[in-house]
């Protein structure tokens, strides 16, 4: 554990908590892509199956349980409890275009051809593109509430901080995982356009609004 890794995890945790607070306080999931949230739930379920087979640390287990619970909880809030506020007309990204290629890729490019390893690889590939329905929704409506922007910024920062963690681990521990690194870089790059808008608009007190 290094400072970048910890900061990344805390950023990830903050993103999830911001999203839950937004939905709970406003009793609404307007502006949030249910499809991205379903993809994140699939990501966590397929990645954290090792909760049952391998104990790493209390920290590791607690975070995994929280990520699993919160992602499934978010899907529940969006599709059941606050279903009426879900903006499904604008949430139209076809997730099979993400699920099928990432599933195929995980069968071809993996460290080991075993069920656990393929599911882990699939979750890494899927996570890298899981935000696309959300970004597509923002671009379709042309705007995002400030709280949604903070959520996206925290979520994007998390994988960016993980890249610094991987650089650190490569130099100081000789450890690297090429699958995680490449997918993590793709994931971070997808947020670049949003980061630019966040820094130039939201941090200056303006609403995130795309040019017409």
């Amino acid at each position: 554990m290094n400072i970048f890794r910890l900061a990344g995890d805390l950023s990830h945790l903050a993103a999830i908590i911001i999203l839950l607070i937004k939905i709970w306080k406003t009793r609404s999931c307007a502006g949030i892509s249910g499809r991205s949230q379903v993809l994140f739930a699939i990501v966590f379920i397929t990645r954290y199956l090792d909760l049952f087979t391998n104990f790493i640390s209390a920290y590791n287990t607690a975070m995994k349980v929280f990520f699993l619970g919160s992602s499934i909880g978010t899907v529940y809030l969006m599709y059941l409890k606050f279903k009426a506020t879900y903006d499904h007309n604008h949430d139209t990204f076809r997730i099979e275009f993400l699920l099928l290629p990432t599933a195929l890729l995980s069968l071809v490019l993996n460290h080991e051809f075993s069920v656990m390893e393929i599911l882990w690889t699939f979750s890494i590939y899927l996570e890298s593109v899981a935000i696309l329905p959300q970004l597509f929704m923002v671009s379709k409506t042309g705007e995002a509430e400030s709280i949604t922007s903070h959520y996206l910024f925290a979520l994007g920062s998390y994988r960016g901080l993980y890249i610094l963690n991987w650089i650190y681990r490569y130099y100081f521990e000789g450890f690297y995982d090429i699958i995680a690194i490449v997918a993590g870089c793709v994931q971070t790059i997808l947020y670049c356009d949003f980061f630019y808008l966040y820094i130039t608009k939201v941090l200056k007190g303006k609403k995130l609004q795309l040019p017409a």
Partner: peptide
């Protein structure tokens, strides 16, 4: 090896 058994990241 980078198998599941060694994965400590989230």
């Amino acid at each position: 090896c980078h198998c599941s058994s060694e994965k400590d990241e989230l």
